[in-house]
Design a protein around this nucleic acid. Structure first.
Lengths: 308, 308
DNA sequence: CACGCTTTATAACATTATGTTATGAAACGG
DNA sequence: CCGTTTCATAACATAATGTTATAAAGCGTG
C-alpha cells in the first residue's frame, strides 16, 4: 500500500473547514458519497477516529483538530509546488549558475547581475570568478549553466556566442607624462616600462603584434595574469599597461589615468553554454540583457573619452 | 482537472533522487514505464522541461532542481502528517481541554497536569478554572473534553464519574487557640467566627447540618464562594473555616494551621465528560492517573495528620 | 563497424482508485 | 408522525495507475 493518500487528506481538510460532508463535497467538486468514503478510508488507514456523528452532522475529534494543524502546513507545501512551477514556466524563478573571467567578475558583471536579479525576486544566482580556461571547463562539465570567457576558448561540448568587443584602454599612473595626451598611440610607449598580461592569452599576442608592427620597444619588466593586478601596479607607478575597459573603469578612482589607445585592439569575449544541454530560459535572458548593458556601457565610454 | 497530481510529484522526486527512471521505479515500487509516463504527463501539465536525455540517462534541468527544493518541503509536510497520525494513534499526542473547579485548579491539579504532560511531549493541554456549574456547561456544550466539578452536578448530556472523596479540614489562623489541638470537633467551634462557603453548594449544606446536629452555634459573619478566599481570610485572622484538603494544603504556608475535623465531611467531586461524544483516549488516562494521584495524596494527608 | 547490453519511451491491456447515481438510516423540527 | 436534511453504503461508470511487451537510442567492446 502506498503512503498517505493526498486526495483523502484533501477531503479531510475540506470537512474540517466546512463542518460537513456535503459542503466539503462542494468545496472539492465531487459528490457527497465520495467524501464520505474517503473519510472512512482515511480513518481506517490511520487507525484513528477523526469525526463523530453529532445530531445530523459530524464533529471533529480532538485528534482531528491536532492533525488538521499539520495538514494545513502540508497543503501549503503542495500549493507552493504548483506556484513554483508557474513561476518557472513564466521565467521568473529558478537557479542560475554563472562563471566569468575576472575582468568581468570583479565589479562590472556583479553590478549588472544585481539589477537583473532585482527584477526577478525568485531567481537565485551563483556567480563565480574564474580564469577563462576554468570557465570553459565548468560549463563543459555542467557545473555552470552559463559562462563568460575569452572568445578564443573552444570546446566540443560548449557553444560560444560572441559578446560586443571592447577596445583596450591605455592605463597610466595618475601623473604620468602621457596623461596629458587625450589619445595614445604605440609610439608613445617607446622606452616605457610596460606591464604585460600572461603569455598564453590571445590578447597578449594581439597587443605584442601591434607594438611590433610599429617598431616600438617597450621595457618588459613586469608580467601578470590578471588585469586587476596590472591596473593596481600602474596605479602604484610601476609602469603603463593596456587593459579592458571594464577593469580600467573599476580602477579609475585608484591612482590611474585611462586613455583611449589607437589602433583599436579588441578585448573579445563570449557567452558559453553547454552545446547539448538546453540552458535554463533565464540564461538566454541574462545573455541578452548583459549584451545590451555592454553596448550601452561602450557607447558611454566612447562619448566620455571624446569629451574628456 | 484537479490540482497538482501527488503521484506524479512522487515520481518526479524519485527520479531526481535516484538519477534514473528505472531506479525511481524501484524506489516507489512500480514498473519503469509507469514512472516514464508520469514524468511525461507532469512535464506536459506544468509546461516545463524537467529532464533531458543525456547519453542513455536523464539529467534534471535547472527548473527541475529549483522545483525539487519545494517538493522536498511538501514531502516533509506529508511525512509529518503521517507521523502525527501515528503519534495520535499511539496516544502520545493530541489536544486535551480540561476545566476544573477552583479548589483543584489553583495548584493541586496544575501540578499533577505538569507531570502528566512531561510524560507526553506531544500532548497539548488547555486547563481552565471555572466554578462547578460552568464546568458542567462547558463539558455539555463540547467546549471542554473533560471536567472536574462537584459531584452533585447533573446534566443529561454529561457523564459523571466519581473521584475519591476528600475529608474537609479545619483551617485556623496560625496562632489560634484551637491550633494546639491535634483534631477538632464541632464543639470546638462554639462561638467562633466562622467563614462559610456559598449558600448554594452541597458542601455548605452538609457542613451546616453537622454543626446543627451537635447543637453548635458559630458566629456566621463571613461568606465567600471560593475556598481560596476562605483560607486567605483565615490566614488574616478573620475567623476559622472548613475547607477541602487540596486548597488547605496550598495555603498551609500562608499563615494558617490545618487540622483534621471529625466527624468526617466529604468533599465530593467527579470527572465529567460528554455522554454521547467519545472523549479523546488521553482523557481516560488523565482521569485514571488523576484518581491514583488523589488516592496517594489523601493517604499521605492521613499519615501526616496522625504524626503531627 | 557490428553486436550486445542498458536505459528510456510508448502501446496495449489489466487493475485500482475515484466519481456518480440510487437509496437507506438517523436526527430534527414542525 | 411526517417531511426534510445529512451522512453512509451499494452498485455501477470513469479515470488513473500499474503491468507486460516491445521499440528506440546510446554506449562499450571486440
Amino acid at each position: 500500500m502506498r503512503g498517505l493518500n493526498p486526495r483523502q487528506i484533501e477531503a479531510f481538510r475540506a470537512v474540517v473547514l466546512t463542518g460537513g460532508v456535503g459542503m466539503a463535497a462542494k468545496l472539492i467538486n465531487v459528490t457527497q458519497p465520495a467524501v464520505s468514503r474517503m473519510i472512512r478510508d482515511l480513518q481506517q488507514q490511520m487507525g484513528l477516529t477523526l469525526f463523530e456523528r453529532r445530531g445530523t452532522g459530524l464533529m471533529p475529534t480532538s485528534e482531528a483538530l491536532s492533525l488538521y494543524a499539520e495538514v494545513e502546513r502540508a497543503f501549503v507545501g503542495l500549493d507552493r509546488i504548483a506556484q513554483m512551477a508557474t513561476e518557472l514556466r513564466t521565467r521568473r524563478a529558478g537557479f542560475l549558475r554563472v562563471a566569468a573571467l575576472p575582468a568581468l567578475a570583479n565589479g562590472f558583471l556583479p553590478r549588472f547581475a544585481g539589477r537583473f536579479l532585482a527584477e526577478r525576486p525568485k531567481l537565485d544566482l551563483v556567480l563565480s570568478g574564474l580564469v577563462s580556461h576554468a570557465v570553459l571547463t565548468a560549463v563543459a562539465q555542467g557545473q555552470c549553466d552559463l559562462g563568460f570567457a575569452e572568445a578564443s576558448m573552444e570546446h566540443a561540448a560548449v557553444q560560444t556566442e560572441r559578446m560586443p568587443a571592447a577596445p583596450y584602454m591605455a592605463v597610466l599612473p595618475r601623473t604620468h607624462r602621457l596623461a596629458r595626451k587625450k589619445r595614445l598611440r604605440p609610439a608613445d610607449f617607446e622606452g616605457e616600462s610596460f606591464i604585460s598580461l600572461g603569455h598564453s592569452t590571445a590578447s597578449r599576442f594581439r597587443i605584442d603584434r601591434v607594438f611590433a608592427e610599429h617598431g616600438v620597444r617597450r621595457v618588459m619588466r613586469i608580467e601578470t595574469p590578471l588585469s586587476e593586478i596590472a591596473c593596481s601596479l600602474a596605479g602604484s607607478g610601476a609602469g603603463v599597461t593596456l587593459c579592458d575597459p571594464f577593469t580600467a573603469t573599476e580602477y579609475a578612482p585608484r591612482g590611474i589615468t585611462v586613455r583611449p589607445f589607437e589602433p583599436r585592439i579588441n578585448f573579445e569575449f563570449a557567452a558559453l553554454y553547454a552545446a547539448q544541454r538546453t540552458p535554463p530560459p533565464v540564461a538566454r535572458e541574462f545573455i541578452d540583457s548583459f549584451r545590451a548593458h555592454i553596448t550601452v556601457f561602450l557607447r558611454q565610454q566612447k562619448q566620455g573619452s571624446s569629451s574628456t
